[in-house]
């Protein structure tokens, strides 16, 4: 289990100080999907990136991030490298930049297989079609360079890459933003299947409240760095306890009823 306890993050620069996350508590268990929603700039990505220790050097963190009881915040870079990808993988926001432009998508997958599972190049290559199929992609795309893929294909490749080492936990940062509705659905269904069939524990960050509510087992709402609401998705959406959540849900209702 990943347990985030009282996490606070402050970005420091010479000019200003930005308290991006304030005392957030969160738990992600295997085989369950937790959705984290909230308006832009509320600190969702910051929480997600803090878990594998990927915040920039300018970010000061406090609190605990426990992976089966071990605090990741106090781990060294080498210890983190043993956890990253093999146990906790991530699909970053806007997968566009997560691939190195001069390497093929398949090469990225081969590399993590070689490094983390000690496979030979050939063994690694043989696993690619199955991984790509898992993410709903044709294995032939592995030979392409990132710029030769569409946004949706890139997003799915990022999922395939994240699944390469059979991680226990998957952190997805807005994996469906900027995609059409059909593709969004498809990807969300793929993710849900991973949780149900492979027993992956998933943290899904999204600001699409209805979408998040429809797939997740638990829904958390963030506002200005604080967790303002947490519970069963339907309860949160239908009976929001917090004025902010109420406003968020209300705005969505209005949008739906507008046409």
């Amino acid at each position: 289990m990943i347990a985030v306890r009282n996490l606070s993050v402050t970005y420091r620069s010479s000019e200003r100080e930005k308290r991006a996350v304030l005392g957030v508590d969160l738990a992600v268990e295997r085989g369950r999907m937790v959705a984290l929603a909230g308006e832009s700039g509320s600190g969702k990505s910051t929480v997600l990136m803090a878990i594998p220790g990927l915040l920039p050097a300018t970010a000061a963190t406090s609190g605990e991030i426990l992976l089966d009881g071990r605090d990741l915040l106090t781990c060294s870079e080498a210890e983190l490298n043993a956890v990253r990808w093999r146990r906790i993988a991530l699909v970053p926001q806007g997968a566009m930049n997560s691939f190195t432009p001069v390497l093929t998508v398949g090469r990225h997958v081969e590399e993590v297989l070689e490094v983390h599972l000690g496979l030979s190049k050939r063994e690694a290559r043989e696993r690619i079609p199955a991984l790509f199929a898992l993410a709903g992609l044709d294995g032939g795309l592995a030979a392409r360079y990132p710029h030769e893929l569409s946004g949706g294909q890139k997003q799915r490749s990022a999922i395939a890459l994240a699944l390469a080492c059979n991680p226990e936990y998957l952190l997805c940062d807005e994996p469906t933003t900027a995609l059409d509705v059909v593709t969004q659905r498809d990807i969300v269904v793929t993710l849900r299947r991973l949780v149900d069939e492979q027993g992956v524990g998933m943290l899904l960050v999204s600001h699409d409240l209805p979408l998040a509510a429809s797939v997740a087992d638990r829904l958390c709402i963030m506002k200005d760095g604080r967790l303002v609401e947490e519970g069963e998705p339907r309860t949160v959406v239908d009976h929001p306890g917090n004025p902010h959540t109420r406003a968020l849900v209300g705005a969505l209702r209005e949008l739906e009823e507008a046409p």
Partner: peptide
């Protein structure tokens, strides 16, 4: 760049990040 951060995020050793990704770019 983001892809360097992500290469680190994939748990690749520092040398590999530098040679296989940064230098390649």
């Amino acid at each position: 760049e983001d892809f360097i951060l992500m290469a680190r995020g994939r748990g690749l050793p520092e040398r590999r990040v530098l040679r296989g990704h940064a230098f390649r770019m």
